[in-house]
Simulated scan of single mutants.
Amino acid sequence: MNRILGLLPNNHRQIEPELMCQLINDNRINEMIYTENNTKDLEILNTHQSIRSLSEINQFGHDEMRRFWMYSRTIQELTISGKEPFPGKMLKPFSENIPLSANGILDLMITYYNDTYKNLKFQKPFETDSLNSIIIPLKINKYCRCRIGSEIFGSTFSPRHQKSSYILAKFASEDDSIDIYPDQIQFFFVHEISTNRINMENHYLAYVCWYKKIKNRFYFGINKEQMCNVELWDTEFYPKSRDCIIPVYHILG
Rank of each mutant, 00 (worst) to 15 (best):
Q162E: 15
W210H: 00
I167C: 06
F187I: 13
F188Y: 14
H161G: 13
Q184N: 07
I185T: 09
Y181F: 10
Q186M: 15
R197A: 07
C209D: 14
I193W: 00
L205S: 04
E174P: 04
D179Y: 13
C209G: 10
I214G: 01
K170L: 10
I214S: 05
N202S: 13
Q184D: 07
L205P: 02
E192Y: 11
E174A: 13
K213A: 10
T195P: 00
Y207C: 08
S173Y: 09
V208N: 08
F171P: 04
S165N: 06
I193D: 03
K163W: 14
D175L: 00
R197V: 09
E192D: 09
A206N: 05
A169I: 06
D176R: 10
E201S: 15
S194C: 00
I198L: 11
I198A: 10
C209V: 07
V208T: 07
F187D: 10
K213D: 12
I214H: 08
L168F: 09
D176K: 14
N199L: 12
E174C: 06
S164T: 09
S164Y: 09
I167R: 12
N202D: 10
Y166D: 14
N196I: 01
K213E: 14
S177K: 13
D183R: 12
Y166W: 06
I185R: 07
Y207M: 03
Q162I: 10
S177R: 15
I193S: 02
A206E: 09
K212V: 11
F188P: 11
Q162M: 15
E192P: 01
I178P: 12
V208M: 02
A172K: 13
H191T: 07
K213H: 05
S173N: 14
C209R: 13
R197I: 05
I178M: 09
K213L: 09
E192W: 07
L205V: 09
Y211C: 04
I198E: 13
L205C: 06
Y211R: 06
R197L: 08
E192N: 10
S194W: 00
N202Y: 05
S177Y: 15
Q184F: 11
Q184K: 13
R197D: 04
Y166K: 13
Q184G: 04
K163N: 15
E192R: 05
S177A: 12
C209I: 07
Q162V: 15
V190G: 01
Q186K: 11
Q186N: 12
I198R: 15
N196G: 04
S164M: 13
I193C: 06
S194M: 02
S194T: 03
L168T: 15
Y181G: 00
S165L: 04
V208W: 06
Q186V: 04
D176Q: 15
I185D: 00
K212W: 07
C209A: 14
R197Q: 10
C209M: 10
A169N: 08
V208E: 04
Q186C: 07
